[in-house]
């Protein structure tokens, strides 16, 4: 059975502005003995400890910049931890960024192959799944067109289809389903529920509280890289709403 086990995980993220210099700067600064601009870091995850077991659908909430995406990417193994232990058991598929992991000039078919191979499929194992992926996307002949011709919703459906058909044990979703129309969402959600029945793990970061309330049994609330609350969906969402109470900070829309 798959599980996710994070123990006191820290993640230091370099501030982008300082990451890239030029050799020319290096040379000039060296000549005039100016101190070289050291990169600065922000603590994107701060002592995060959590355990998720198979069959759980976990929602992640928090304000912008609270570390929701960072947490998912750390679980996916994309980001290296600075401290702590990250123990993940199971094959992971991730849906983070609509634009990530595709070649825009390649056709839908080519992208299906690329993305599936990236997730560890082989030509032999993929052959039987191609039909299912194509059917799920409902793209039909559109699959022969380059990806740049697709709408955002269609690209979302395509990546969802590939991720789901490669049978992952853990599915990580970052604010992804909101781009699809009602029908697309229903379809994706149906597939997620199916996966949960098979004792798999789904983790979703989202701002859509109604959606999370409906599908997640458990919610993790992140604030400034720390876990502020972790528990049953209703309780956590309720206190999250309380803390963001719009009555206290007078909304310009209310005026």
């Amino acid at each position: 059975m798959p599980h996710i086990d994070l123990d006191n995980v820290d993640l230091l993220y370099p501030v982008k502005v300082h990451t890239r210099t030029t050799f020319k700067d290096y040379l000039v600064n060296g000549l005039f003995r100016k101190p070289i601009d050291r990169p600065r870091y922000v603590k994107a995850l701060d002592q995060v400890t959590l355990r998720v077991d198979g069959g759980e659908c976990v929602g992640i909430i928090g304000r912008n910049g609270a570390g929701k995406s960072t947490l998912l990417r750390t679980i996916a193994g994309v980001y290296p931890t600075s401290a702590g232990v990250c123990d993940i058991n199971g094959k992971i598929a991730s849906l983070f960024d609509i634009a990530a992991g595709f070649e825009w000039n390649a056709t839908g078919w080519e992208n299906i192959h690329l993305r599936a191979y990236l997730q560890g499929e082989t030509p032999a194992s993929l052959r039987d799944k191609l039909g299912a992926i194509a059917a799920f996307t409902e793209l039909g002949d559109m699959l022969d067109l380059p990806l740049k011709c697709y709408s955002t919703g269609r690209i979302m459906l395509l990546s969802f289809a590939i991720a789901a058909c490669c049978e992952p044990d853990v599915l990580l979703i970052d604010e992804f389903l909101s781009t699809g129309d009602l029908q697309v969402r229903e379809k994706a959600i149906g597939r997620m529920v199916e996966m949960l029945r098979g004792d798999r793990i789904v983790m979703i970061a989202s701002h859509d509280l109604a959606f999370l309330r409906q599908f997640c049994s458990r919610i993790i609330w992140l604030e400034k890289g720390r876990i502020r609350a972790d528990g049953p969906a209703e309780c956590v969402i309720e206190s999250y709403i309380q803390s963001n109470n719009p009555v206290q900070c007078k909304s310009p829309l209310a005026a």
Binding site: A76, V78, S94, F96, D97, A100, G101, R115, L118
Partner: peptide
């Protein structure tokens, strides 16, 4: 980098 952001390779 677009692929590195999807999974560690």
């Amino acid at each position: 980098s677009t692929y590195l952001r999807v999974r560690p390779v």
